[in-house]
């Protein structure tokens, strides 16, 4: 079976949860929530998942616990959660903005607000899903820091010890922060995407993307994963609508 771009993205997002064990996997948005369920159904069976409201559910949908917002906040602060959030802007250190564009005191564009981003990023593993990799989203400096990046976490000293940015998945590529100075690195490009395209659409220097460097291709979904995605996890094809290219 040949995978579409959004299916490659779903698997790349699911991979963020590999090895997480028995913690809450929270995917904010369509593809991250599909990805959490994909990981749960395949290589990360111990993950806890909610129905997106206030109920913990097992793989077949059986309710197994009550998880209102208060309990989720407790899990956030205890560290037993990995979230995949969106980002209106992100910089090379992984600072994320979902609050406002422009001067936040009088924004050019008011966005969601801080939501849980400050608490999530300082307390437990965080990854990002950015469905449109562009110069608008990958910026030299974010207008507001909602989610904390590596530079700011490092400046906190021991208080930043639970900060744990894992990966950034976009419609073009997988990126992480596995560099000596914890700045963003190109891990792989999705099948059919040129490294040059990723570089052009990134508003800061990207590690691992210099001319001559060999950049791997993001892994293809297995037949089992494709079958799960198409038949069980996303039968109505909602994920395809979230990916432009």
């Amino acid at each position: 079976m040949t995978a579409a771009r959004h299916e490659v993205c779903a698997v790349a997002l699911a991979e963020a949860f590999r090895g997480d064990g028995e913690i809450l996997a929270s995917g904010i948005g369509v593809l991250p929530s599909i990805a959490a369920r994909l990981a749960r159904a395949t290589f990360a069976p111990d993950l806890l998942l909610t129905d997106g409201v206030a109920t913990l559910v097992e793989a077949d949908g059986t309710p197994s616990g009550w998880m209102p917002y208060r309990a989720i906040f407790d899990l956030v602060w205890s560290g037993r959660r990995h979230v995949i959030m969106g980002a209106s802007q992100i910089d090379r250190h992984g600072n994320q903005n979902i609050a406002a564009i422009g001067d936040p005191r009088r924004p050019k564009a008011q966005l969601l607000g801080m939501r849980g981003a400050p608490g999530n990023t300082i307390n437990h593993p965080t990854s990002y899903w950015i469905p449109s990799h562009s110069l608008r989203s990958f910026v030299a400096k974010v207008d507001v820091v909602s989610g904390v990046g590596h530079d700011r976490a490092a400046a906190l000293g021991p208080a930043g010890r639970f900060h744990d940015l894992r990966r950034v998945v976009t419609d073009l590529a997988v990126l992480d922060f596995a560099t000596p100075d914890r700045t963003m690195r190109l891990v792989s490009t999705h099948p059919g995407v040129a490294v040059a395209t990723v570089v052009e659409r990134t508003g800061f220097p990207l590690a691992g993307a210099s001319p001559g460097e060999v950049v791997p291709e993001t892994r293809q979904p297995t037949d089992e994963e494709l079958d799960l995605l198409r038949r069980v996890l996303d039968p109505r094809g909602l994920a395809a609508k979230e990916v432009a290219s």
């Binding site: 602060w77 400050p118 300082i122 906190l156």
Partner: peptide
């Protein structure tokens, strides 16, 4: 007390 907010712009704003 909490760690939530540390490092973000919540405190600056």
């Amino acid at each position: 007390p909490t760690r939530a907010g540390l490092g973000s712009d919540v405190l600056a704003l």
